[in-house]
Design a protein around this nucleic acid. Structure first.
Lengths: 129, 129, 129, 129
DNA sequence: GTGGTCTAGACCACA
DNA sequence: GTGGTCTAGACCACA
């Protein structure tokens, strides 16, 4: 499910971090549940274990996961609370960025809205209503 | 108007490129019009001339601008055409990114729409309606 | 009484070693007396038996304890002598470390002394005087 | 001035961090002042640049230093404030550790005090008075 | 098997 | 020159 975009400017370790957070937020990864092992995920993503280790280390420092030596890494109990806090911030950021971009390309609000809804529709299984 | 986000993972030269393209698209920079000189822009953005030079070099290679030795850099006649081509691609990218992000954070389509419209409203001078 | 600090950089086996030595020095563990069994101590400390085994193995190599197959591990007769030798070394080490740390934090001798005595007082049942 | 103890259990990157903090606290490194470059310090300490980079990265995340791409790392303005906060915590920790150690070795308060003052005297140029 | 530290060395952005 | 990311691979503590 996790993917690395090798063409992106975003560092690999950062992509891993963001996607782990995303999965916690989605509930795919729940409190107490183990993350894939560093080596396992590295193999899966075709990247170096050190890079995954860095992502995990930073997630630990940010209290989304915790580590037990020799056992593995696990989602913390308060991870979802932390993510919920980050959530609004993150969402505002990405939408503001998109809108800003559209404005720079000289679109007005209704044009922006039209494009947005087209994209949203394409990526939704059910009709929006 | 142009700004460098020093905390972003996007390289400075890329930020400059994107913003120049944005201004061409906006019509703030028109065909034939001169760009700010490398040194001038570098001073303005508090970055090294080499970095601006790289942005200009790539914009030239992509045919958005051309260089006249001793005179400076100018917007090409077909720059807007080129940008128009990029436009849809760019917009789709940024909106898809935003929507993707929202989905990772476990929002459904109508929630995403609500947030989007709130942000869009905040950043528009006239009411949308 | 023995405790593992899971946040410390000091390896678990080393923490066990140090604390066993401490108890021999304290007289809580006397020559000839049996140590808790490897499994027992491992269970108590919530760590793996292998880790306790390593601590015991090294203590045996350093002649603080000896092993009787099928019976267990016991404190040697000359353990206290050995520890007495280590004692001054150990104490100097820890105090030098503390003083060094204080100096790095830019305190002068009298300030260091003041802090030290405050801490010592706090951790002593009877008044020092 | 900075030294790596290769026999210590404390990781190299952590030793570097602690000593940089110590020098900031001492005033040897002042706000705005540049740290030695990563490569320079690595060469000096006979360790790998990656290890120094990790120390610097963590110091940056803890807001003791900041980084300017292509320019170097510099002490932040509020570094001393942050250190002052850490100061008491750190000092209590090290002194408590030393005292605890002494108690485990079965010394009473006055003996501990005697040893402490002997060590303190040895490491002070002027008599304490 | 698990994670943690470290090295040697490549390649990039930036000054 | 500066810092940042990444890889390949070694060695250690711990389960």
């Amino acid at each position: 499910m996790i993917k690395i975009d090798t063409t992106s400017f975003i560092p690999f370790y950062e992509q891993v971090k963001q996607q782990i957070k995303g999965r916690i937020s989605l509930g795919t990864l729940r409190p107490g549940e183990p993350l894939p092992s560093i080596r396992e995920l590295a193999t899966l993503l075709l990247i170096n274990p050190n890079t995954v280790a860095r992502a995990y280390r930073e997630l630990e420092r940010e209290r989304f996961i915790y580590t037990r030596k020799g056992k593995g890494c696990f989602v913390t109990d308060d991870s979802s609370v932390l993510i919920r806090k980050e959530r609004t911030v993150i969402l505002n950021q990405v939408f503001d960025a998109a809108i800003e971009e559209a404005k720079k390309l000289n679109l007005n609000a209704s044009e922006i809205k039209k494009i947005f809804e087209r994209r949203l529709g394409m990526r939704t299984s059910r009709p929006i209503l």
